[in-house]
Design a protein around this nucleic acid. Structure first.
Lengths: 335, 335
DNA sequence: TGTTAATGAAAAAACGTTTCCATAAGTAGA
DNA sequence: TCTACTTATGGAAACGTTTTTTCATTAACA
């Protein structure tokens, strides 16, 4: 096997009869090098096909130009994670950073990345926070490695998140406007913060539009399609409502499937709305009204902030909440 | 701002009164170091909280333990890319590798990764091959950096791909079995290899099941939902068929939407099948029969092969074609 | 003409590892 | 007791950059 000789800065120096230092200065646009020398060096680099070794650079500079992005294990269930990552990559590329992708299940590997100084910073989609994660956060804080949360605030760490409360409030306003008098809210699993926020916002929205909260019913699901089906089956046995608002689209899909089986037509007999603008929402029959989180914006702002933290070595206290967008589709209509 | 003093191998050496070399040997499980010394060093490392710097390691070893994964720009449209990435990460983590994710649009950045020796290898989902990509491939070959294609074979480079021909053949077999006598195939954009393979396989499958190819009609789409709609609208103006096979699910969705508008019931008046098992296929009404590509397996095999190439420094000629799975759903039924 | 200041570039140190080479101590065989 | 071989370790070079220091040359000035 032919062993390729590596081309280093030394070869360039030799080829144009100057020192490594000069070549390095040319590469880094140091203005103290004479223009003609610059030309000579540039030409030499092109001629012998030199490219600086980024690892050596990183070691010398103490900066890797890489950031880790941590997503939930089931990122598959939410295509908006792709938007989040796209946004992060768009910013990253324009600033010369690379992103190392990790699922939460590989948190040990993420911790190693930090310990071994393999990344300059991190963006974490933290939907829950285990002890391991909390330790990680405090360690990063301690060693001064910047990071930003994009799920939920934890302690006093920087975050960029969705305004779940505001989004649900808009749905409430819509539901009242459409004339719904009795409403069912299907929550997520116990204590899930997103779901709690959505319920809180929904309540506020209903109340401020003159809806009597006595007519708001609440059932608990677990975010799965099946739970949406199950909950509605149980609920509709002895009660009825005008509309259902589910804490996510998967459960709303469950409700829709139940109605289809039961022969209840949507939106005529029942209004329906979900959250997340999941991939199928647009293609269901009827298409599903839902609350769309601004994932691209979150990714953009998170990455821009992170880079600022990395490069300025300061620690601006980023705490940003971004508004959702109500996607009004066919699953709810004036009563 | 408090400047954290970095803890290096030198500190460990000092702390336990031995040399850096010995500490290094302990970390790398060199058996030539006395067991008691190992204990001392291990304890010292734990006590002062030492973690080796991965960048320094990479420089010294000439190995980054990172691989680049390149996906199409519109990976958003195909959730199976997530499965591909998950598989790659699963293998990567078990072998101590990290993955750097890049979209194809940032190919320049990918090229830099290679030039700057920032990764040990690459997995590329190449659905088409631009000149830039071809140059990249040949450069990687030249400098001896391993890579694997997971889209289409190019020249003689290693690849792992889907058996599009076989998948389409199964659909053909199904269609004949269901009693369809006249069939429309909607192709992808001109010369798209996946689409061509699917058509070829479909033809073979029909013929070998005794179907008269005179009754196979072919129209060209461009993979979008809209083109599926448009093509069917135009086709059904003056012809009719028993079933449609579209080269992807998005176009099949277009056909479905057209039928819904036109009042043609699926599967009673028209059988329908697509390719890809896209996210919505399962949730459409009726749910869509489709050909599911084995993306997880592709990712697994690609990454395992890549690691073998990286670590063994040999170049086994990987050329693997994996079978699809027919997802039989409600959109086609016996005539 | 001699002193000082500014400039361009070389040499050397640093970044934090791994690895090669040397050495000292210990063991075994004669 | 000598030689030869192993074993555990230390010292130093290497990996390929950047950055600091040093030095030599030229320009400027009195």
């Amino acid at each position: 096997m032919n062993k390729l000789k590596k081309i280093t800065i030394e070869d360039v120096a030799e080829h144009c009869g100057c020192s490594k230092a000069t070549v390095s200065r040319v590469m880094n646009h140091d203005k103290r090098v004479r223009p003609e020398t610059v030309d000579i060096v540039m030409k030499a680099m092109a001629e012998i096909g030199y490219h600086p070794n980024s690892i050596a650079r990183a070691l010398s500079a103490g900066k890797t130009s890489a950031v880790a992005v941590v997503v939930p294990d089931n990122w598959q269930s939410q295509p908006y994670y792709i938007k989040l990552i796209d946004a992060i990559e768009d910013v990253a590329d324009s600033k010369g950073y690379h992103i190392i992708l990790k699922r939460r299940k590989y948190i040990d590997s993420v911790i190693e990345l930090v310990n071994q100084k393999r990344v300059d910073g991190m963006i974490i989609r933290n939907m829950e926070a285990s002890d391991k994660e909390k330790n990680l956060f405090s360690k990063m804080e301690r060693i001064g490695m910047p990071f930003i949360l994009t799920g939920q605030p934890v302690q006093d760490y920087p975050f960029v998140k969705v305004d779940n409360i505001g989004g649900a409030r808009e749905v409430a306003s819509l539901f009242v406007e459409l004339g719904y008098k009795k409403i069912l809210f299907i929550s997520g699993p116990e204590d899930h913060i997103d779901s709690m926020d959505r319920l809180a916002g929904f309540r506020v929205g209903l109340a401020e539009n003159g809806f009597d909260l006595k007519n708001l019913f609440i059932e608990r699901g677990d975010y799965t399609k099946e739970s949406g089906f199950r909950v509605s089956k149980k609920f509709f046995e002895n009660k009825s409502v005008d509309a259902v608002f589910a804490a996510n689209d998967r459960m709303a899909l469950g409700v829709l499937l139940f109605c289809r089986e039961r022969g209840m037509t949507i939106p005529d007999e029942l209004g329906l709305a979900g959250c997340d603008d999941n991939f199928f929402a647009e293609f269901l029959t009827p298409s599903l009204t839902t609350v769309k989180p601004p994932m691209y914006e979150i990714g953009t702002i998170a990455m821009e902030s992170l880079i600022r933290m990395i490069e300025n070595r300061d620690r601006p206290n980023i705490k940003i909440i971004l508004p959702t967008k109500l996607m009004l589709r066919d699953s709810c209509r004036r009563k």
